[in-house]
Amino acid sequence: MEEKKRTDEFEAGTAPPSRLNNREERRVQKWRKMIGTGGSDWKYYVRRKPNVVKRRIRKGIPDCLRGLVWQLISGSRDLLLMNPGVYEQLVIYETSASELDIIRDISRTFPSHVFFQQRHGPGQRSLYNVLKAYSVYDRDVGYVQGMGFLAGLLLLYMSEEDAFWLLVALLKGAVHAPMEGLYQAGLPLVQQYLFQFEQLVKEHLPKLGRHFDEEMINPSMYASQWFITVFSYSFPFPLALRIWDVFLYEGVKIVFQIGLALLSSCHDNLMKLSFEKLIHALRNFPDEAMNPDSLLPNAFSIKLSKRLIELEKQYNDRNGVSSHKQVKQPRLSRKAS
């Protein structure tokens, strides 16, 4: 892993190596033991002690192991092993109808991050390849703005090919429900998530929910990016990474939890604001609110699993969708044609 990738304008908040004390070293040791060489012990450990794993992930995956662990928990490592040579095929031999769209957005993805800054540099080239490969892998979805931020975040921690398969694992649903609906025509999953989130705000923060209604604020005005890019678009990297640790292991629920925890931590201030100032505040949370060590525990304390399922059903009933997830099977082992 190249060190330069991680140095970023947003990284100021993380501990410098000099503060990497004994406790931190012991933590990394524990993690190494849990993973085994190259991930050999991981599955065994997860099966035996799922709650230990969950607890440790919630505390944050050590940065030096993040790339590997992400591949293990997302199921992308298995996809990679099941599909040798496929990525290369997609990148080198296939052409995509989205090539120009992708190029247009390459320099507009994490433009202030050193890894992606250099025009046609290694960062931009990898990003292009991953996005192009995905647009060929699923030609129906192709390339959609927002994907670049997912791929970009992954590329800070793994190779192109690994990042590609992790993207596949997420969108096609290797471990959790597929998320390709975020990018399919009509953005059906974005619409569903926004509906669920709006209801949850009303239920968990009723006063704020009423205030939003009165001010005619709806979640599409501030939360679309949260879901479409899983907080990678505009949130500080140290926070985004901690969210991704949990997101990859536990699923999309954490995005709702973080969203609610953020609103909750700024509740009293938000209550005082009218429409325009509200929109501004909802896009620019104060630094204190975005401290992972307080935000994440608050998020975990919000219990949503059951309600999220009910709200999904309610949304689908309303929109005449009969559990489309069963209809569309993920095509995980599709070979390049």
Binding site: T109, P111, Q145, M221, T229, Y233, I279
Partner: peptide
């Protein structure tokens, strides 16, 4: 010259 692509909607007055 290097702004992010817009995801969803943005707003200003």
């Amino acid at each position: 010259l290097d702004s992010k692509s817009t995801i969803g909607v943005e707003f200003a007055t």
